[in-house]
Nucleic acid binder design. Sequence first.
DNA 1: TAGATTGTTAATCGATTAACAATC
DNA 2: TAGATTGTTAATCGATTAACAATC
Lengths: 213, 213
Amino acid sequence: MKQRSISNAVIERLPRYYSYVTMLERAKVERISSKTLGESLGITPSQIRQDLSCFGAFGQQGYGYSVRDLRRELGHILGVDRQYSAVIIGTGNLGLALIQHFQFEYSGLRLLASFDKREQLIGRTISGVTVLHSRELESFAQKHPFQLGILTVPEDSAVTMANRLVKLKVQGIWNFTNAELGITDPDIIVENVHLADSLLTLSYRMAQREQNP
Amino acid sequence: MKQRSISNAVIERLPRYYSYVTMLERAKVERISSKTLGESLGITPSQIRQDLSCFGAFGQQGYGYSVRDLRRELGHILGVDRQYSAVIIGTGNLGLALIQHFQFEYSGLRLLASFDKREQLIGRTISGVTVLHSRELESFAQKHPFQLGILTVPEDSAVTMANRLVKLKVQGIWNFTNAELGITDPDIIVENVHLADSLLTLSYRMAQREQNP
DNA sequence: TAGATTGTTAATCGATTAACAATC
DNA sequence: TAGATTGTTAATCGATTAACAATC
């Protein structure tokens, strides 16, 4: 398995491959060729083979890829089998939506707890996840280490809470707030879900479509 | 203003520029050079000038860009001044989170209503937005046309509701469900917020970091 | 075996960066 | 005016696609 210098473009396609072969495995499909996979995803077979070959040789000439094996390999590459633990910081509607509807197991994540500072929420258990008071974050972390913090607080507490996560030496922050967290520690990966940016690209394309019929 | 063939990479940087100059304008900054802007965003000045020049010449030699003008131009390019109208389909936690916390005005959007099929929600007004029954979607659309549908329903109703939006000739769908909507109509822009993919790229980088210290 | 399909090398294409004349 | 900074052209870099020998 060659390490290093995998381009962003490749990394962003991996989850799509993973999601598709997961679906195939559920549908009991046993093998898939880069040609067929490419047709389904709108990607050239060449690119798929090129992407996968960054990580090893998972296929077989004349046959294609074993769906089972490919899924396992992709899962491994994506870290799904690492069983990271996560907590949610901010149990508002967005936090609740994630607790109740997001399939954390799909990404190999265990959701340990959710935090909030509103007293009326503390102690409630939602879909098996207990809401704890934010002030207990550090003591909780000592007893139950976690690697990922999911930031769904209001924008004005974003930086404060992010810094507390940094102090706890989390490895990753999944940031749903619009705030720029300004984390400089190179050991912490921040993935921003910038909904406003997503909506603006949509708006751009809509506007474009109108101008060029 | 040159049309056509703006690359994806450019389009995805525009909202970042917009967001930054919006912040600058709020902070009463009057001018910005591609050099300074580039330093703030981690983008080369060359690229910023190249990107902007796809749409026109907004700067001034020896001076830079007027923050006010640049923001207005970017807003125009992104369609912010089009005042599109939108509705939310699915008033669960995610829909509620958007209604209560997402700044739709920032993208120039008017949120007209929210829909759900659960009787106990119908008629409630949240942050000024009324929840209507899903069955009234079509009659509502007749009286109050909208261009954008925001899809925050459970996965199993995603395709059905998307198709109803297509029939209503919306111009765009902002899809928060994990479902592949399978919309073929080339007049309808679909922007997928694939949270699972976002989390998996984060997981990948976390796993990578661990392997290469 | 013959047909299919991989992994990889080389060729092409597109996006980013550098350079600089134009000019405020 | 002199210094700064644009818009744009050319050079570089990287990513995608095509081609094909290897081989199941």
